[in-house]
Amino acid sequence: MDMLTQIIFNSLIAGAIYALVALGFNLIYGATKFFNFAHGSIAIAGGYATFYFNKILGVDVYLSVLLGILCAGFLGYISNKLVFSPLRKKKSSHMIFMVASLGILIVIQAVISLIFTSEFQTLSSSLASSKKYIFLTGIITKTQLILFLSVLLIMGLLVLVLKKTMLGKTISAISDSEEIARNIGINSNRVISYVFVIGSAIAGVAGIFVGFDTGISPTMGMSLLLKGVIASIIGGVGNVYGGVLAAFMLGLIENFGVWNFSGEWKDAISFAVLILFLLFRPQGMFGKK
């Protein structure tokens, strides 16, 4: 029984990563209403950018993290500018957006593999050397603690931006209805561009933490994204708090699933939960009907 705390910690760490992916995904989905598959690979690209600056160029860790986040944001900007914005001008369907984003996912993955090979990389030199804390009977590393706190911080900031700033209000207006927003004079293209930058930057944070915590490989983007998407659907698409809470819940479900069955059922469990939710509570845990 003394492992219970540890399992909960494991779940929270996994959940924190999913939460970061879900936060960015939610934001972009809210404004554009399509499933952006590229989101996961942008997260991983952020991790690799940090890896490049820190491990290859020898830039200071904190600066590298910042550069990694900027790179992810920039990729978000570029993907919107070159692909999604023109598609929006043509009034393409959401399915077309989705397939195009699948294309971006594949391209980013392949480009990362070309530059960094398809092998697995870790950002920290050795995690074992990172400081460990013991709470109750569970162990948590310093990296993981920072990760956990970052999620709360980013969530807080995001809520603040959405609720208190002009930008946040225009984003909400576009999320409610892009047409009305445009009619009342909001430059929706510019706002959506911001949304892509912010959402992708948050995804970048997720990728960087994965790199520090366990390690990244170019093809991880898809599964990372899917977990984030599952979390945001369970939490109710567009609901910031709901997404984060659901991400932690997904972490718990997965890890208790592994605890009770075996490691190989992990992904199947998450998708089974997703399908059950879609069937019986499509609006999510906290969504309104």
Binding site: V83, F97, A100, I106, V107, Q109, A110, V111
Partner: peptide, 13 residues
């Protein structure tokens, strides 16, 4: 892979 991906993007565009 890049050709697959670009093909999808350009087709959609």
């Amino acid at each position: 892979q890049i050709i697959y991906g670009l093909a999808l993007i350009f087709l959609m565009l």
